[in-house]
């Protein structure tokens, strides 16, 4: 428990009549990279969105660094301030569609949250942003607007933007799915570096190669539950469950 960076217990989530998560348990240790696979509609994105309370779960508990984020003072609805402040300043998220702010430059995208949320001085935020953007290979794009960037570049800005809040955990929600094939690698490389530096990561992905190389744990979800989980080599090469075998068969066939 002390080591669990993120811990989910019996997490359930409904959208109206539709049960999207039917009781999910998951432990993520500090520095661990967990790759979540599964067919569309299996609940994997919803699971990520529960961890930073974009979708507060109906039932179950989620612990981040040992704190129950669904039961904080002021609690449970996901609309109150305690959990949100706690979670969102510790958990960063990167989206499939990048969601950069189109009316702000690359630099402003990265500095906006540290300035408004943390109230840090402009110069400090810009120095941090410059460092982060250089690290993702975009040190020369500071004054560009997102629209002028390729998808891969935009996604790297999104990663830098998230890192600027100094998160302890990063959530990646199919971050390469909207990219042209030749741009996927540059984003995965950044993620790989992050993993090597010890960032705790939950990665929803269809990139089997990434899951195999970078993942410490692979989780296969289907129908709102975790069907199988374990070391990448075990789950990907010797899946025990029929559903996992079928899914991997379909994905690896390509």
């Amino acid at each position: 428990m002390a080591d669990a960076m993120v811990k989910l217990q019996g997490v359930r989530k409904n959208f109206g009549q539709l049960e999207v998560l039917k009781g999910v348990d998951l432990d993520v240790a500090k520095g661990e990279v967990v790759c979540i696979l599964g067919p569309s509609g299996s609940g994997k994105s919803t699971l990520l969105r529960c961890v930073n309370l974009l979708e507060p779960p109906e039932e179950g508990e989620i612990f981040v660094e040992g704190h129950d984020i669904c039961r904080g003072p002021g609690s449970g609805t996901g609309e109150e301030s305690w959990e949100l402040d706690f979670v969102r300043q510790r958990v960063g998220m990167v989206f499939q569609q990048f969601n950069l702010f189109p009316h702000k430059t690359v630099m402003q995208n990265v500095t906006l949250a540290p300035r408004t949320v943390l109230g840090k001085p402009k110069a400090e935020c810009e120095a941090t942003a410059r460092r982060l953007l250089e690290r993702v290979g975009l040190g020369d794009k500071l004054d560009q607007y997102p629209e002028r960037l390729s998808g891969g570049q935009q996604q790297r800005v999104a990663i830098a933007r998230s890192l600027a809040m100094e998160p302890h955990v990063m959530l990646f929600d199919e971050v390469t799915s909207a990219l042209d094939p030749e741009l996927v690698k540059e984003v995965l490389d950044v993620m790989r570096e992050l993993a090597e530096e010890g960032m705790t990561m939950l990665v929803v992905t269809h990139e089997m190669g990434f899951a195999r190389e970078v993942g410490d744990q692979v989780v296969f979800m289907d129908g709102g539950v975790i069907v199988e989980q374990g070391k990448p080599a075990d789950v990907l090469d010797n899946p025990r469950e029929a559903r996992t075998q079928k899914f991997l068969g379909l994905v690896l066939e390509r």
């Binding site: 958990v91 989206f95 009316h103 949250a113």
Partner: peptide, 30 residues
């Protein structure tokens, strides 16, 4: 303004009001 804009702002720790002021309204008003 696309929903993803609010989600991005909120996931960065901005409050509803901060997200409205810095992200949603400047885009919506155009």
């Amino acid at each position: 303004v696309p929903r993803g804009q609010v989600e991005a702002a909120r996931s960065l720790g901005m409050s509803h009001f901060q997200a409205m002021r810095h992200v949603v309204i400047p885009q919506g008003i155009t």
